[in-house]
Design a protein around this nucleic acid. Structure first.
Length: 263
DNA sequence: TACATATGATCAT
DNA sequence: TGATCCTATGTAA
């Protein structure tokens, strides 16, 4: 489930379980064997997430870069760890924990320069402090590409994926087809604030939850998955029941509510 | 069994 | 815009 919140959780999880002890690194699948050998015996010094990009630095100066893509997973296993499945590209483990990476779109060792190049081409990450709405507004104001498409562009805002883009636009009441440069300053601010809020909930809970429990009136106890979202992958609006519309933007399907997101 | 699908990005045309 | 990469899961045949 890789949108930005997952990567930030991974950064924390890897750091806290692997701690400062030397790690064993291996590539049961074989495609990362030579690089894994360079990580083997090192200690993790830093883990960081920038949008959906994960970096793990080690004492020996290695920088591991992982991007999960659409189907990648970095799973935590209890130690002592079970035999890895044949698809595990990379296993990192020590007495504190074990992590199995499968299906990544990127798994590579980078130089500091290469790492910097990746980070520099990313837009502001709502889960980080630094740049804020001004940067986002400036970038959106330069293009007439629909806002539903630009929110997926990691060089404009880093960390949102196909679920968050649909839910953020719903909560902001913005039609995804609207040209990016026709958003008001206030609307861009709200997009940023909602992104920050929702991604933080994602980091805390591990799930993408955008609905307000008070509104949904969840039947006491835990929410059902069907209660988590307003529009993504739904047929009818979770708020008003209206039949939703689905269009293609930036090569992916986005669903919106014609009532709450008027043209 | 086989196929469709998925919370992504890149590269070729 | 389309093809491609990578894996796991659910549904259809």
């Amino acid at each position: 489930m890789p949108e930005g919140h997952v990567i930030h959780r991974l950064a924390r999880g890897l750091r806290s379980t692997l701690g400062d002890a030397p790690i064993r690194a291996s590539s049961p699948q074989g495609r990362f064997e030579a690089s894994a050998a360079l990580l083997d015996g090192e200690r993790v010094t830093r883990t960081e997430a920038w949008g959906k990009y994960l970096f793990v630095s080690t004492t020996g100066g290695q920088i591991l870069h992982v991007h999960l893509g659409l189907i990648g997973k970095f799973r935590s296993k209890d130690v002592p760890a079970p035999e890895p499945t044949p698809t595990v590209r990379l296993r990192l483990e020590n007495d504190g924990g074990c992590w199995d990476l499968t299906g990544p779109t990127r798994c590579e060792l980078l130089t500091p320069r290469e790492r910097r190049a990746i980070i520099e081409r990313l837009g502001p990450d709502p889960l980080r402090r630094s740049p804020r709405t001004e940067v986002l507004f400036e970038r959106l104001s330069r293009t007439s590409i629909p806002i539903g498409a630009t929110l997926l562009d990691q060089s404009i805002i880093a960390g949102l994926g196909n679920i968050y883009r649909a839910e953020v636009l719903f909560l902001c009441g913005i039609d995804p087809r609207r040209p990016s440069n026709r958003l008001s300053h206030e609307e861009v601010e709200e997009i940023w604030e909602q992104s920050v809020r929702l991604l933080r909930i994602g980091v805390t809970t591990g799930s993408i939850i955008t609905t307000d429990p008070a509104e949904i009136g969840r039947t006491r106890g835990r929410m059902r998955p069907d209660d988590h979202l307003y529009v993504y992958h739904r047929d009818h609006c979770r708020r008003c029941g209206t039949e939703l519309r689905t269009i293609d933007l930036a090569g992916r399907a986005i669903t919106y509510c014609p009532v709450h997101q008027p043209t």
